[in-house]
Design a protein around this nucleic acid. Structure first.
Lengths: 341, 341
DNA sequence: CTGTTAGCGCTTTCAG
DNA sequence: CTGAAAGCGCTAACAG
């Protein structure tokens, strides 16, 4: 039978209360007593029953999610995933609160983090904006003992516990490999449509894409990055101009959002002259385009998985437990017409 | 505050014991009483605290995994994943038992299922062999109230609760799409290396592959399937013969195991004459070959995810709970050199 | 058929 | 600094 606190108490010759104090590193226990308990724990191979502990404590995990109020399909999906988590909140002892902040606004994010921190939640998840002041507050929070994880967009160099998102450099490299393979040996130009290169994910994707294109597919010419601001209309306009200016565009890599504009444009292109197209995020638009043969591949991150992972990590971190590493690695999904979920 | 059994008891004007009886559909409660309790549950929005219930019951979930004693990398990985689960068994209230059976042997599998069933576990997971007698025992077990899930290889038409594995037809289709794209417009032959077409996964992958090749890439010629018996030496031999017989082989789809033989052979081929190669399962061999540029893409299923999913589903099924559907869909991973984990 | 009572393993007052 | 006792939400005998 698995040993319980009771067994530990007997073995160590102390009371339950003392065992509990030691187990939870609470003050008010003599060094020697502590040692006796530790010895008993080791001797009996005791592992705490977290479920019972949580029951006794009536513990709930107040978690705060800070999400950009960006209105694109992906962010809506992310918000929906958090909503799903809220639906399961009762049974998982969660109390999830969402704070919305304007996108790409470091100041707003800092303010939101401060606000979140004041309520001393069991953990905070945020879609990071890569700015020094954000890094500073995150570090403060972590040092104050509040676990923080970044979601979708990371904050490297900060003290955040974990990043629940894909490797964007690998995503860009993968896109380049696929593009190169799809285009074959004939020369041509490749256009890249980003939201904005001031955003870290987009910059990293481009970086990875550029690197592999240069190293492996020298016969393809990479055009200057087009910035579509994640906005369908803008994306359509800049792409239309690019297509007009460069007759030899054989491929398009859309690494940001706003793919509705891209797809509208693609529909106008004669089927046999359509470029190879790789886009990000499986949404209604990209899924339909994939099915219709307008887009050739979609690189995706699973928002549901990211949110569940963030929650698992925050919970575990809140009570000093470890996680199944492999389970928390967010995968880059590659969707073709044939393996749509 | 969340309502508890106590609140229900008061609201319904009955005792705790009666509430418990109703909640667990235990016999010995008058219809009217039952209705009162149900009403109270609905009125107060009561949700049972499974953690507390499990604590009171001292519940553990004895689960039985029936795995083939096949010695290939993938099956070893699967066994390792079950091993990881066993390591976490204590904290998750699991008692996992593994039964090994000879691969592809319906009789042995039937015997193992019978044996597993006699111990009345909380659930059974098996790598199915697609045979009527297996289907029959599985159905018996399910009807006897033991949840059953198939792992990696499904048993369609049976009463199994769930299939924790990839869609193999989609996998084959995806392989074909990639192959077609990789090869471009020039004609050529494509070889398919299977373990054996009597195995359902392999048959389905081939089916999907063939369908897309025929529909989309008519200029490519699909050679008759080679059966390598998931054995490196055999695979190497049959492939070598095929390459000798058909000088125009431009692509190889290896949809089974035994890729060590394939890779050995590929190393002999002059770099500029190397065919496009797509294989299944990310193992040491395929990973290295991917890195070295000998294999172009690897389709993979995450054994760890499959095992964790099977456990979640069995547990949930054992106590009549529902699962997060999206979380239990096993994805087909596509790995290129650039997105290796 | 229904209620009472004593736990499950851990935490938490409140006294010593 | 340490211990005794009550209780988290639920279940399981055992009586009625």
């Amino acid at each position: 039978m698995k040993p319980t606190v009771h067994d530990i108490a007997v073995h160590a010759g102390v009371s339950l209360a003392t065992v509990d104090r030691v187990l939870n590193n609470r003050p008010g226990v003599r060094h020697e007593t502590r040692a006796k308990v530790d010895a008993a724990v080791a001797a009996l191979g005791f592992v705490r029953d977290m479920a019972a502990a949580n029951l006794a404590k009536g513990r709930v995990y107040p978690l705060t999610f800070i999400l950009p109020s960006n209105d694109n399909s992906f962010m809506r999906g992310l918000a929906a995933a958090v909503g799903d988590a809220i639906a399961r909140a009762a049974v998982e002892r969660l109390a999830i609160r969402i704070i919305e902040v304007p996108a790409f606004d470091p100041q707003a994010l800092v303010a939101a983090l401060r606000e979140a921190g004041r309520e001393k939640p069991a953990g905070i998840a945020l879609v990071a904006v890569d700015a020094p002041e954000v890094r500073a507050v995150v570090d403060e929070l972590v040092e104050a003992g509040i676990p923080v994880v970044t979601l979708v967009s990371d904050l490297p160099g900060s003290k955040r516990q974990h990043y629940a998102g894909i490797d964007n450099i690998a995503a860009g490299r993968t896109a380049a490999s696929l593009m190169g393979r799809f285009l074959g040996r004939e020369p041509g130009s490749v256009a890249v449509l980003a939201g904005s290169l001031v955003v870290r994910d987009h910059r990293e994707r481009f970086e990875g894409f550029r690197a592999v294109m240069a190293a492996e597919f020298g016969h393809l010419h990479l055009l200057p990055v087009l910035e579509g601001r994640d906005d369908p209309a803008t994306a359509e306009r800049v792409l239309r101009e690019a297509l007009a200016a460069h007759a030899d565009i054989a491929g398009i890599y859309s690494l940001g959002a706003g793919n509705r504009g891209l797809v509208r444009l693609l529909k106008e292109v004669r089927r046999d002259r359509r470029p190879a197209v790789i886009a990000h995020e499986l949404t209604g638009t990209t899924r339909a385009a994939l099915t219709d043969g307008l887009i050739d591949a979609v690189l995706n991150q699973d928002a549901g998985h990211e949110v569940r992972s963030a929650i698992r990590v925050l919970k575990a971190s809140a009570d000093g437990q470890s996680v199944v590493e492999a389970q928390e690695r967010i995968r880059l999904d590659i969707f073709l017409r044939d393996n749509l979920p």
